[in-house]
Amino acid sequence: MRILLDECTPRPLMRELAGLDVAHVLDLGWQGRKNGVLLASMLEEGFTVFITVDRNVPYQQNIPASGLVVVVLEAPKNRLADLRPLMAKVRVILETAQPGQVYRTGV
């Protein structure tokens, strides 16, 4: 499982997924890509999981057809302090996540 963190998530959030194959959009130079192009790039590069705070992605993209797992983090702000507590739930989601599904986790 290869995981990509969206550019709107803080880069240090990667530490909360230590031991997993995680990259950040900024590390790949993919910042500024529209969601459709970003998801296509993910598939080309073998990513299977997309973690974002963008609540609109599931409505703007055909996630079931993509075969990707999308995890939407729902917190008051996109700050590390607000998102870090959600990562234990994300790890649980990833254990049973099915391709083409959207999962939401929040406080």
Rank of each mutant, 00 (worst) to 15 (best):
I51A: 11
R2Q: 15
A40I: 01
P12C: 02
L86F: 14
F50K: 09
V49G: 03
V71Y: 04
A18P: 00
H24K: 10
L39C: 10
E7I: 05
G106H: 02
P12R: 12
D54F: 13
M14K: 15
A18C: 01
L17F: 02
R2F: 11
N62P: 01
V69H: 08
A81W: 03
L5D: 03
L28Q: 03
L73N: 06
L39Q: 03
E16K: 07
D6E: 08
L4K: 14
N78A: 05
G32Y: 14
A65S: 13
V49L: 05
M14G: 10
G100N: 02
P12Y: 08
D27E: 15
Q98T: 12
P99H: 15
G67R: 09
W30P: 08
L43D: 05
P10G: 02
C8S: 14
L68S: 09
V92W: 00
L5E: 00
A65C: 01
R55H: 15
L43A: 12
A88V: 00
P64G: 01
R15T: 03
R11Q: 06
G19R: 03
Q31N: 13
V49A: 13
V37W: 07
V92S: 04
D6S: 07
M14F: 10
N56L: 13
A40L: 09
P99I: 05
V37D: 15
V92A: 08
A88M: 01
V102W: 01
I51F: 11
G36S: 15
E45C: 06
G29N: 06
V49C: 09
N35Q: 04
V53F: 13
P76A: 03
L38M: 10
P10M: 03
V69K: 12
A81M: 02
R2W: 11
I63R: 10
M42F: 09
V70L: 09
V53H: 11
V69T: 12
Q60A: 14
Q31H: 14
G29A: 09
S41E: 15
D82N: 01
W30I: 07
T9M: 07
K34R: 15
P99D: 11
F50V: 10
N56F: 05
V102Q: 06
V90N: 00
P76T: 07
A75S: 13
E16Y: 04
E16C: 12
R2I: 06
Q98M: 12
V25G: 07
L83K: 05
D6Q: 03
G67A: 05
P58M: 04
L38I: 05
R84N: 01
R84G: 02
D54S: 07
G67P: 04
N62I: 00
R91K: 08
E95I: 01
L17I: 00
Q31M: 13
F47R: 12
T96I: 07
R11C: 03
Q101H: 06
Y59N: 13
G19N: 12
L39K: 04
T96V: 14
T48D: 13
Y59E: 13
V102K: 10
E16I: 02
I93W: 02
L86E: 11
A75E: 05
T9H: 04
P12W: 10
R84P: 05
E45P: 00
E74K: 03
T96P: 00
L20G: 02
